Computed example of a mutant assay.
Amino acid sequence: MMAAPNLLIVVQAGRLEFQAIILAASLRHAAPGFAGRLIVAEPQPEGAWSGHDTRIGEDTRALLASLGAEIVPFVACHFGASYPHGNKIEALSVLPPDEPFVFFDTDTLITGPLDRVPFDGRPTASMRREGTWPQPPLYGPGHEAIWKSLHDRFGLDFASSLDLSHRHEYWERYLYFNAGWFHGPDPAAFGQRFLDWALSVRDDPPEALASQSLDPWLDQVVLPLVIHSLGGGRPGPELAGLDGDVTCHYRKLPLLYAREPEGVLNVLESAVAPHRIKMRLKEWEPAKKLIYQGKGRGKVRPLFMQGLPVRERPIRQILKKNGWWGD
């Protein structure tokens, strides 16, 4: 097993502050033996975020520091407010080179012993995804042509990226990740390639992408290309705990209460029970209502007692219909 990787999250003013507190608290609660660093990248209100209040509050800053987080500023030059998902690409620059890393979206809960996950340095990413991109038009080009055009753009071997257990044109045949977590041995090489290739696709997309939206999908379009180019691929069974019993990418608190198992709820509520954490999180309306007032268990969870839809979209629709989708 490699040395404990550096963990990277991106935090700025607003919702992400509170999610970062939950992540840091859950890390200390569920993985007290984790010896790696938790690095919080904070975009500054300049460059591509010029004119936006991105700095986190002093209360959050102090609480994260007390939970062992290291807050490191960075200036986003290429994406910023026009494409906030680009933060995860540019924030890789704050990590020390040649040290293994794991990026987590801030809306992630640590639910188990992260220190026991055998990261081996091979680049990979989350497989907790749906067939969200591409959406081929009726008369083409299809999945194959779209993904091949991207591999061709960067001189990659397309055939070796395929999962041949799936039929031609089925979305899971093609290398596609959720960017909720990704891992690699060197953030400098990974981050530079991620940035260069994301800018290339954004500014000059291959012709096969003419009918495709890249917002908000750009990071997830380019991520598999970067991973494949660096000798990585789909995660092996040794990383099954990520998006399993070690981490949970919940996305929004109402979704967590709607679909996650009871054990995940127990970890969340135990991790954020300490008074100093509770006092700050209660300033965020979703945490106040769903966690501390018990409405996650009492109001949201019963909406799905008769069965949980397989796909995320109908779950979101039910939550919105019942007034549980606000930040």
Rank of each mutant, 00 (worst) to 15 (best):
S149W: 05
V246T: 04
H183Y: 12
G263V: 11
P205S: 11
R313H: 04
H151S: 11
A159L: 06
H52S: 07
F34I: 02
H168F: 12
F34M: 05
F103N: 04
E207Y: 15
H249Q: 11
S82N: 09
A31V: 03
P286G: 11
A62N: 10
D98F: 14
N322Q: 00
P134M: 04
H275Q: 14
S26F: 05
D327M: 10
D203Y: 15
F154I: 13
L63R: 01
Q317A: 14
Q212E: 02
I21C: 05
E130P: 03
M2Y: 11
P141E: 05
L308C: 09
G184P: 00
A208L: 02
L214F: 03
F177I: 02
L255K: 07
A20P: 14
L16K: 00
A91E: 01
R153A: 11
L95G: 11
I318P: 00
A159M: 12
S200G: 15
Y139F: 14
F101T: 08
P235L: 08
I291D: 02
G57E: 14
W325L: 08
D107K: 09
L225T: 05
L109F: 03
D163A: 01
A145C: 06
G131P: 08
D98M: 10
D163N: 04
P224K: 05
Y292E: 03
R55C: 14
P137N: 11
K289A: 02
P5G: 03
L16S: 04
Q192C: 12
P302E: 14
K288D: 13
G14S: 04
F177Y: 00
T111L: 11
L156P: 01
A273T: 07
V117P: 02
G57R: 13
G140R: 06
L303N: 06
Y174A: 01
E260D: 10
H166F: 11
G57C: 15
M127P: 04
E312T: 13
Y174Q: 05
G47P: 00
T106A: 02
R128F: 09
V222T: 09
W217I: 12
L199W: 09
L156R: 08
E172L: 15
V10T: 04
P235A: 13
Y257K: 09
R61G: 07
A208T: 07
Y176I: 11
D59R: 02
L319F: 03
P141V: 05
H275E: 15
L195C: 06
S200C: 10
D219W: 03
A81Q: 05
I21T: 03
V221T: 12
Y174F: 08
F74I: 06
S149T: 13
W217G: 05
S82W: 12
D219Q: 11
P235Y: 00
S161G: 00
L64F: 03
P32I: 06
